[in-house]
Computed example of a mutant assay.
Amino acid sequence: MAKKTEKPVQRVKRTGKKSKKYAWIKWVVIAVVVLLIAAGAGYAANFIDLFNQSHSGDLDKDDLGISSDSEALQDDGSTDIVNIALFGVDTRTQGEKTRSDSIMILTVDKKHNKIKLTSLMRDTYVAIEGHSNTKLTHAYYYGGPQLAVKTINQNFGMNITEYATVNFQGMAEIIDAVGGVEIDISEAERQNANISIQEQAAYGMEPDYIEKAGLQTLNGTQAVAYARIRYVGNADFERTDRQRKVMEQLFYKALDMNPLQYPEFARKLLPYVETSLDIGEIMGLSTIMLRDVSMEQLRIPMNEHLIGSGSIRDSSGGSCLNVDLEAATKTIQEFIYDDVDPNAPKESSAESSQKAS
C-alpha cells in the first residue's frame, strides 16, 4: 500500500471573525460543536426544547473497555480534558445497521484552551470483541456505538464514555444552512463527485451537479459528494483530506454566524444527531467556545505507524491498514493529554543537553 507524505497534524489559531486560516474538522464534529455553540449562546431554554426532540442514545458505562492503567491513559481524572467519540454514518432507513464511514475523537481541552480532533482511519486493522480482527469501521455495524466506542478504547487505550453520530443526509442540510462551503476542486474530483451526486439522487437528494473545476462554493449535496470521493488520488488518505477541507469551512462559518441564527441552525442539525451526551454535559462543555480557542488535528495512523507495506488482509480477505497500535496509541495519548505536536522537530541529544545546562 502506498504511503502518502503529509503532515497529519495541523493547528490554527482563530485570530478574527473572518480569519481565512481554517483548521479542519471532519464530518461529524459539527454535530457536537454546534451543540456547544448553541448551548453557550444564551438560548438555553430553546436549545433544551430542541435537544429533547432529538434522539439520544445511552451507553453502558460499565462495558466500554476503559483501561484501569492510569499511566497508560495519562489522565489526571479531571474534567479539563474530555474525549467524545464521533461517528459519521450513511443510513437510509430508521434502525438500519451500518458501518461508521467516519471515526473521530473530539477532545475538549480546557487545560490548553483547545479543541483537538483525532481522525481514526476506518480501515485500520483492530481487534473487535466477539469478532475477528478486521477494519475499525465494522465495529459500528456489529454493535452500534456501544461496541464502536469500546473498540476504540480497547485498541487505543482511551477513556471515552460519550459519543455523537450524524448521518450523511444531515450533512447536506447543515452545509446548506451555512450557505455552502468554498472548495478548490480538481477536474478528476469533479467528475467523481458527480457520479456520487447521481447515486444520491436515487435516495431523494437534489441532483445538483458540479459544472466546472476550480475554487467555488459547493452546496450541501455537492460538498457531501466531494467529501466522499475515494477513487481520486491516494484512496482514504486523500479522502480524509477532503473531509477535513469541508469541515474546516463548515465549522468556522457556523462560528461566524449571527448568534440569532443559532437556534434555527440547531433546529436543522438536531434531527440528524444521535448522542449519549445529556444537556448538562453539553452546557458544561460549551464554555470553551467562549474562550479564544484554537484547534488542532491528528490523523491516525501517521505514516510512521504503518507496518511494512501498510497492508494486511482480514479473515474475509478484505484489505486493511496494518498499524503499529502501540506506537499509534502513544502518539494519541501525547497529543491529547501532553499537548505534544507529533510533527514538531525532535531535539538532538546535544540540544537537550545544552538546554539542561
Rank of each mutant, 00 (worst) to 15 (best):
205 M>H: 00
230 R>A: 10
246 V>E: 09
195 I>K: 13
243 Q>K: 08
256 D>K: 06
275 T>I: 07
258 N>C: 10
230 R>W: 09
202 A>K: 06
235 A>Q: 12
232 V>C: 03
191 Q>H: 09
225 A>W: 11
249 Q>E: 15
263 P>F: 10
203 Y>I: 12
273 V>N: 07
222 Q>K: 12
242 R>H: 04
269 L>Y: 10
181 V>M: 02
237 F>C: 02
218 L>N: 01
190 R>L: 03
270 L>S: 04
258 N>K: 15
212 K>C: 05
215 L>W: 00
181 V>N: 08
245 K>T: 13
207 P>D: 05
242 R>V: 04
258 N>D: 15
186 S>R: 08
253 K>I: 03
208 D>A: 05
194 N>S: 02
188 A>H: 10
252 Y>V: 06
208 D>N: 15
262 Y>K: 07
262 Y>A: 06
224 V>D: 07
271 P>K: 12
245 K>A: 14
214 G>Y: 08
178 V>Q: 08
223 A>C: 03
181 V>P: 06
172 A>I: 09
180 G>I: 04
241 D>K: 11
188 A>I: 11
272 Y>R: 10
241 D>V: 09
179 G>I: 13
187 E>Q: 11
195 I>L: 08
178 V>F: 06
240 T>K: 12
225 A>I: 00
271 P>D: 14
228 R>W: 11
181 V>S: 11
205 M>I: 03
259 P>G: 12
210 I>V: 15
192 N>V: 00
266 A>G: 05
268 K>L: 14
217 T>H: 04
232 V>A: 08
174 I>E: 06
221 T>A: 02
235 A>D: 15
261 Q>Y: 07
204 G>Q: 13
244 R>V: 14
234 N>W: 09
170 G>T: 02
244 R>G: 14
218 L>P: 00
258 N>R: 15
257 M>D: 09
215 L>F: 00
187 E>W: 00
185 I>A: 11
212 K>Y: 13
170 G>C: 02
263 P>L: 10
200 Q>V: 00
186 S>I: 12
211 E>N: 09
230 R>V: 03
225 A>F: 10
253 K>H: 11
184 D>T: 09
227 A>N: 11
225 A>G: 02
270 L>F: 02
275 T>E: 14
236 D>E: 13
224 V>L: 12
264 E>I: 09
271 P>Q: 12
234 N>K: 13
206 E>K: 14
247 M>L: 14
270 L>A: 06
177 A>N: 12
182 E>T: 14
176 D>Y: 01
188 A>C: 05
196 S>D: 09
238 E>Q: 15
235 A>P: 05
269 L>M: 11
242 R>M: 04
219 N>Y: 02
209 Y>A: 13
248 E>C: 00
266 A>C: 07
180 G>Y: 01
176 D>E: 03
